[in-house]
Design a protein around this nucleic acid. Structure first.
Lengths: 256, 256
DNA sequence: CGCGATTTGTGCACGCCTTCACAAGCGCCT
DNA sequence: AGGCGCTTGTGAAGGCGTGCACAAATCGCG
């Protein structure tokens, strides 16, 4: 198609340049590419081949090329991708050109850690406010921010232009917090509480459950054990291949 | 098929009862079903229909039935599933009948929170040891455990029968830690460091990257904004439908 | 100026996952 | 005992995602 047209150049006019709706799977990988690209840029690379970027991001090179082609792509055949250009492009698509304000609700064990996690700040986000329902925690200062009572959410949400809510409360409190976030106009929620949230249409919820991740690992562990444990008993076929197989969804031998 | 045969009853003979290799997508949902089932059991329910359990877990009922059918299934037509029986069955398949020992490496910000997270203990895991490479942190006591130097990993791994390793170090240190874990026989790793790990075949790695989750939300936020920005400003638009529906991949109206 | 080496972009086929729709099975009520 | 309503388990269809393999395009060099 186009030669080197930039459908939505980052620093360019802010006029909603027809954001393509990418496949979910692609969206989920873009941040990984972005991180790899930042590393490459820091290492002095000006261009990178699909093969090189793919291995740095831990994916197949064909998959990477297809992913990038979805967003209009900025590669040069015979050469590769311009690192800086691609960074700008991905950051634009992900909406990282504006530093979004994040409200963190629940400053218990996990909330404390999240409040102090510098990975947020360094990757396009700003923790703008901390909330908790426990009066004993209100007023405490964490990483330069004062914990406020959840009832102040409406006022602060407007003041700080909160775009994303992070829930790090115990499960029983999570639904109420989600409702409050939705009520003040938040349409994106990251939920660390181990429960299902019910939210209106148009609100995105992503869930991170640490115990679930471990349980998934446990299953594979269990399965691996049950395979290597049956050298004799023909029992259930499978005949455990000596090398074993690949993994769940990520790694592969990557050549740093 | 069988009436009420238990191919692998939990407390039963420990003789590797032909663990079926479930679809990855199913495995990833089983922990969610398990959590929902525990809630139902606590609420006094003895049986539950696929519809009921599905909404409690935030999924489609057909999907749930197919998932459960993969593990031999223990439902009764016209009635539903026996809650206690299903709990046992899922816990068995996930390998949660034995409480696996977890080693946590890196007790910085996030590591501290993970060490104190009671969700691990309550859901089948035991944090057996904490490690760090920083001598200043070695010796510190967290949640009843003393932080040890990473060099003690080989000895402790054997003593405590470590089954799963959790990496909560900065990215530059993660690969070395992974290598050390693999060297002492750990074949399941949960990685919180924002980097790709290279591991041998047969080792499972799952990755949790908090910033990536936010960036995915950011994309959808960006896209929603670019859509609603066209009609007539509407500020935050959306006119939140009262009933509201699901979102990206989880929620649904749940009737607690 | 032309040719070959290199690398992107993509058409295509395959497999996994989801969803629908319905037959089979079970309990309860009459 | 028989029928009826409810719920599970599953065959089939459709959609999505992945990976291969190759044509198109670009650069560098002779």
């Amino acid at each position: 198609m186009s030669q080197h047209r930039h459908p939505g150049a980052p620093g360019r006019a802010g006029a909603v340049p027809a954001l393509p709706d990418l496949p979910e799977a692609t969206v989920a990988r873009l941040p990984e590419y972005l991180r790899a690209l930042h590393n490459l840029a820091e290492a002095g690379h000006e261009t990178v081949s699909s093969e090189g970027l793919a291995s740095a991001a831990g994916v197949n090179s064909a998959k990477l090329r297809k992913d990038l082609s979805h967003l209009g792509s900025y590669g040069t055949r015979g050469v590769g991708y311009d690192v800086a250009l691609l960074v700008d492009q991905i950051e634009y698509v992900l909406g990282l050109t504006q530093r979004r304000a994040v409200a963190l609700v629940g400053v218990g064990n996990l909330g404390h850690a999240l409040a102090g996690y510098d990975g947020f700040a360094s990757r396009g986000f700003r923790i703008a406010a901390l909330f908790d329902a426990d009066p004993a925690r209100v007023g405490e200062e964490i990483s330069g921010l004062v914990v406020r009572h959840i009832d102040e959410l409406p006022r602060v949400a407007v003041e700080e232009a909160i775009a994303i809510g992070v829930i790090a409360t115990p499960a029983p409190a999570a639904q109420a917090v989600a409702d409050q976030l939705v009520a003040v106009g938040v349409t994106s929620i990251l939920n660390f509480a181990p429960c299902v949230l019910s939210v209106p249409e148009g609100v995105d919820v992503r869930k991170v459950d640490l115990a679930i991740e471990l349980q998934i690992l446990s299953f594979h562990e269990h399965r691996k054990a049950s395979l290597t444990a049956l050298p004799a008993t023909g029992g259930s076929a499978l005949t455990a291949l000596p090398g074993g197989l690949a993994v769940t969804d990520t790694q592969e031998a990557i050549g740093t």
